[in-house]
Amino acid sequence: MIDVISIYKTFYVPHEVKALVDVSNKIEAGEVVVVIGPSGSGKSTFLRCLNRLETAESGKILVDGVDIFDPKTNINTVRAEMGMVFQSFNLYPHLTVQGNVNLAQKLVRKRPKKEREEKTRMLLEKVGISAKAKAWPSNLSGGQQQRVAIARALAMDPKIMLFDEPTSALDPEMIGEVLEVMKTLAKEGMTMVCVTHEMGFAREVADRVIFMDEGMIVEEGTPEKFYKNPSHDRTKLFLKQIL
């Protein structure tokens, strides 16, 4: 589904950092991939390259065979098929909860009013927040906001969901409710790429774990093999530190 072919990315501001070095990977439909790694290892950059929020300097990313770094590609149609959830939720503060979920359906999918409102109602129910449909984002807790953000991404009927540390900005007691929603999604067969530190989540639902360090994919494998029996010293050290 997504074919990452040898991408490189370097940041020059504030100082030169090699964020991605020769990263290649293949994400199949229906797969749940968890990307872990220390801070600054390039895992968020990797995720943001998948829908061209960052552009790679060299290399290719093919999404369903479409080269997204080709200037001739209409990136908006590609992005419409990829939902993204951010660490800081990024709900639109000037719209209500249902307004947040409705907007892209209206502008991008051009759904008629009735249809999109029905979809919104259904999704808010799914993430367990239908009682707050008319509330403003600023009146919700972090966990509630993140669940609305997931509903907003799902409203586009994406083929793939990208999660950029969705639980890192949450208070501990709210992490569970967001992970529950993500687990449900995974069980429904959604293709997911998650950058997260939630080892429990990775163990339970991931098909594959990718460990990145210094812009490179150091090791990847099934969760069992990865957690029980890592082959690299760097992976062992990282797991020792976080577990």
Partner: peptide, 21 residues
């Protein structure tokens, strides 16, 4: 906040849709 633009653009909105909405 740049996150607002990222959220809007990542859902497939065009530059101008993001700007005006």
């Amino acid at each position: 906040h740049p996150g607002q633009v990222e959220a809007a653009r990542s859902s497939g909105m065009t530059y101008f849709q993001c700007m005006f909405h």
